[in-house]
């Protein structure tokens, strides 16, 4: 247990180093120049000397390795630097957006679970019957629909035609519904299928037959005895979804003007705001590792056999 946590923390450091260095190099290789953005070069006449001065003050004239090392040592002192554009500390910026992203992530996952759990259980129990066929169709549609299109359709009907729900921004529960539903439906298909196949597999286990032979009711056999093993692949997948969602679901955040991390990083990339991009990559990398640790611990909690094997 402690060994697992230790190795994951070590992994976190390695992942962090690799991720940030890779993005650092790629950013510099990509065309575009933050100095020009900072000086608003398209609107104002700026001399070469002025550009050089800004470049020098930001340390952008230094060799790549020197720049990265400087950035790295600041990170070790928990300083992610500040945005070139707004001059706000990157840590503050991420912190202010992370809440909104987490909210919509949780919203999306809740909608997904509300659809996938009952549908997955029903289609496993009534395998190849009409419920299963219907859920198969639904899953296929859910997976195939592009979320930007689904989001637009939802906005058109619920916000524009029927005026039931707000379409933009973050202002409470009502604002959360449309982005959550858009995210949830997109994910639900995969999870329904995953839960179905997991549960079908565990329902065929000898211990399920034994539970029935002890006279337990079918609902109890499914929910208490079979579901535990059937849910394991779902938990693993859940970790992956959570990781990618916390990185900011760009499409949904842009579509619903949701002030989250995804929107922030797209803006930062357009403006070549290097410190913001670097800070973002570092934070999401750490989050993904932490979530995977959480998934591993959850799976161990669910399956005691794994706990004793190590």
């Amino acid at each position: 247990m402690l060994g697992l946590i230790g190795s994951r923390l070590l992994q976190m450091i390695v992942v962090g180093l690799f991720l940030t260095f890779a993005t650092f190099v790629l950013m510099k290789l990509a065309p575009g120049d933050p100095v020009k953005t900072i000086l608003n070069i398209d609107d104002v006449a700026v001399t070469q000397a002025e550009q050089e001065a800004v470049r020098q003050s930001l340390g952008l004239d230094q060799p790549l390795v020197v720049q990265y090392t400087e950035w790295f040592w600041r990170v070790v002192r928990l300083d992610l630097g500040e945005s070139y554009i707004t001059h706000r500390p990157v840590a503050d910026l991420i912190e202010s957006k992370l809440g909104a992203t987490m909210t919509v992530t949780l919203g999306g996952l809740t909608v997904m679970l509300l659809i996938a759990v009952p549908l997955g259980i029903l289609s496993a129990v009534y395998q190849n019957r009409w419920v299963d066929q219907l859920s198969r169709l639904f899953s296929l549609i859910g997976v195939s629909l592009p979320s930007f299109w689904l989001g637009l359709v939802l906005i058109y009907w619920f916000a524009y035609q029927w005026r039931l729900l707000p379409s933009m921004g973050n202002g409470g529960l009502m604002h959360l519904i449309l982005p959550s539903v858009t995210l949830g439906i997109a994910m639900a298909g995969v999870y329904t299928r995953l839960l179905r196949s997991g549960l079908i597999k565990s329902l065929a286990e000898p211990y399920v037959r034994a539970a029935r032979a002890r006279g337990l009711g079918e609902v109890r056999v499914i929910i208490v005895h079979a579901l535990r093993e059937g849910v394991l692949p779902v938990v693993t997948m859940f970790g992956m979804s959570l990781g990618s969602l916390l990185g900011g679901s760009v499409v949904v955040e842009m579509l619903f003007a949701w002030p989250g991390l995804g929107k922030m990083v797209v803006d930062a990339i357009i403006q070549r705001d290097y410190p913001v991009i670097q800070g973002y990559v570092l934070c999401t990398g750490m989050l993904v590792v932490l979530i995977n640790l959480g998934v591993d611990l959850t799976v161990r909690m669910l399956d005691p056999r794994l706990r004793w094997r190590s």
């Binding site: 000898p206 037959r209 208490v224 005895h225 399956d303």
Partner: peptide, 13 residues
């Protein structure tokens, strides 16, 4: 009582 004693109870409980 089954032949497969390892499957006579749910392993997680």
């Amino acid at each position: 009582v089954f032949q497969d004693y390892a499957g006579s109870f749910t392993p997680f409980i």
